[in-house]
């Protein structure tokens, strides 16, 4: 990636973050003229957490998607693939029935517990030295299981309110989260991203296959474990606060690799930036869409992401036929 592209990418993220704080500007300006303190409170208490969450969650999805795709040597892999997102969602829904959706600590612990549970089940099923195909299959099975259990939990909701809360949360939302809630997601995400970035050379060497990566001295088992654990912790923390948001983890790394000449490890940082930008932009769509009520952001990313995914599948089939 050239310096110019990198600067442009950072600038794009910065602009979208600023837009996320300031749009819609009308309310903010009129409030600023009436009561300056209230205007700053609005910025700090409502818009900053929302922008921070969009940036952190998007970046986490982008970076973990890039790392998982590099690990599995598969451009269709995503954080959901290891079963950790669905495990986190299940853990959070179950915790929410006891503590409600406004207890960030309990939810985070519940979601990370769910993610960790899914991870341990994955390691139990696939073994610590699993072949990629085994790991993929096990991850798929765990995703399906966690999805089914989440649906069961919804069906057995203790009250209609609990059902509605859980349902809305599952669609993903960045709205009405406090600054401390936002930090509960953003700080683990930032730590996980920074640690994932350290794995870039090992992930790049996987371009030549696992055997060559090992001959370079990379411990592939440790790498696999690190990527899965960091993804579980970072994504788990974000899922706990915002619910499950799909497709960003799939799409961002694909664009990231376009900027790094196809190198999967080097694509981690661009993918994180693109993921952050995508979620910030999706949140702006949520705010500005003239529908009279707020769209769930998970629906927006899915509506934008699904056609892209289909295009990708068709494109790959077409390339293979040629």
């Amino acid at each position: 990636m050239s310096l110019r592209t990198a600067l442009l990418l950072w600038l794009l993220v910065l602009l979208l973050f600023a837009a996320s704080l300031l749009v819609p500007a009308g309310d903010l300006v009129s409030l600023f003229h009436q009561d300056r303190g209230l205007a700053f409170a609005l910025l700090r208490e409502l818009r900053l957490p929302r922008a921070l969450l969009a940036l952190a969650y998007g970046a986490m999805l982008g970076a973990s998607g890039a790392a998982i795709q590099a690990l599995f040597a598969n451009p269709l892999a995503s954080p959901d693939l290891t079963g950790t997102t669905s495990g986190a969602a299940l853990g959070a829904v179950l915790t929410a029935y006891i503590f409600g959706f406004s207890a960030p600590l309990a939810l985070s612990i519940g979601a990370m517990g769910g993610a960790l549970g899914a991870l341990l089940l994955l390691l139990f099923l696939a073994g610590p030295a699993a072949e990629t195909a085994t790991l993929l299959l096990a991850g798929l099975a765990i995703s399906a299981l966690a999805g089914a259990l989440t649906t069961l939990a919804l069906a057995l909701a203790p009250s209609p309110f609990a059902f509605y809360d859980a349902y809305e949360w599952l669609m993903g939302s960045l709205i009405d989260r406090s600054l401390s809630q936002a930090l509960f997601a953003a700080l683990p995400a930032l730590a996980a991203i920074l640690l994932l970035l350290r794995l870039r050379p090992a992930l790049d060497s996987l371009t030549l296959g696992e055997e060559v990566a090992m001959s370079f001295g990379h411990d592939i088992r440790r790498l696999r474990l690190l990527v899965v654990c960091l993804t579980a912790a970072g994504v788990g923390a974000c899922v706990a606060i915002c619910g499950a948001i799909g497709f960003v983890g799939l799409v961002a790394p694909i664009f990231g690799r376009r900027l790094t000449g196809g190198h999967p490890g080097r694509a981690l940082l661009p993918a994180a930036l693109i993921g952050g930008a995508l979620l910030l932009a999706s949140d702006l769509v949520v705010r500005l869409a003239p529908l009279g009520r707020t769209l769930p952001i998970g629906v927006v990313t899915a509506l934008l992401g699904a056609p892209f995914f289909l295009w990708l599948v068709v494109h790959m089939r077409w390339r293979m036929r040629r």
């Binding site: 371009t207 030549l208 055997e211 196809g262 190198h263």
Partner: peptide
């Protein structure tokens, strides 16, 4: 080390 497989995981130059 050159492995027997000539597969390359990603479309680099």
């Amino acid at each position: 080390y050159l492995p027997a497989s000539r597969d390359i995981a990603w479309p680099v130059s």
